[in-house]
Every structure is written in structure tokens, then in C-alpha cells.
């Protein structure tokens, strides 16, 4: 079963099981992970579910789409090369662990 590891700015790590086909955002909400606000509910319209995708996980998920690319410019904590909207990261099937780093703020 796939898992997702959320790393908080404090360094705290939480690893939770995920369903293939779910998003990293929805999985975070379902498990009460802090720091992922997701105001727009997953429509790529608010940039408040921003995460930094760990380089070790980059090859596991689909790349940034055009819509996501535009909205990442609005990420409150600053865009980096590995910035993603967690609502747009779909969990692949298989025994992978996707590691994402939660930023310090979202609004």
C-alpha cells in the first residue's frame, strides 16, 4: 500500500497510509495533518495546499501541469524548484512512500 510522509517545518514526520488515486492534499485532510489548508477544496485555485516534494519522490508522481504551474506563483511561503500543490499530486499504486515537506505558512 502506498504511504505519504509529511515533514513539518519543525522536522516532525508523520507517515500515513494512502489510497492509490487519492491526492496528497485529501490524504492530509483525512488524517488531520497540520499546515495544509486547502481552502478551495482541491480546484487548484488557492495555493494553500502548497508543499515541497522531496527529491527522492519526484520520479513517483506526474509532473506539474500548466494550471498548477500558474497557481504555484501564488504560494505564500515562496516557490522553489520542487514546489507542488498537494491537491494536484495523485498517489500512484504500489508500495511507495511519497515524502512532502510542509511549508511554514500557507496564507
Amino acid at each position: 500500500m502506498p504511504t505519504i510522509t509529511y515533514v513539518q517545518p519543525s522536522g516532525e514526520r508523520q507517515t500515513v497510509p494512502a489510497d492509490a488515486g487519492a491526492t496528497v492534499m485529501l490524504t492530509a485532510i483525512a488524517h488531520g495533518i497540520g499546515g495544509i489548508v486547502a481552502e478551495c477544496g482541491g480546484a487548484a485555485m488557492c495555493a494553500t495546499c502548497h508543499v515541497y516534494l522531496d527529491p527522492a519522490s519526484a520520479a513517483l508522481v506526474a509532473p506539474v501541469s500548466e494550471v498548477e504551474n500558474e497557481m504555484l506563483e501564488s504560494a505564500a511561503s515562496g516557490r522553489r524548484e520542487n514546489s507542488r500543490l498537494s491537491c494536484q499530486i495523485v498517489v500512484p499504486a504500489g508500495d511507495h512512500d511519497i515524502i512532502v515537506h510542509v511549508p511554514s505558512h500557507q496564507v
Binding site: 485555485m45 494553500t48 500558474e70 497557481m71 506563483e73 501564488s74
Partner: peptide
């Protein structure tokens, strides 16, 4: 794209 960019948080 134009309208969303205009009204995005960064803008």
C-alpha cells in the same frame, strides 16, 4: 487563465 491570474493570491 487570464482571469485566474488576475485574481490569484499573489496578485
Amino acid at each position: 487563465k487570464v482571469v485566474a491570474g488576475l485574481l490569484a493570491p499573489a496578485s
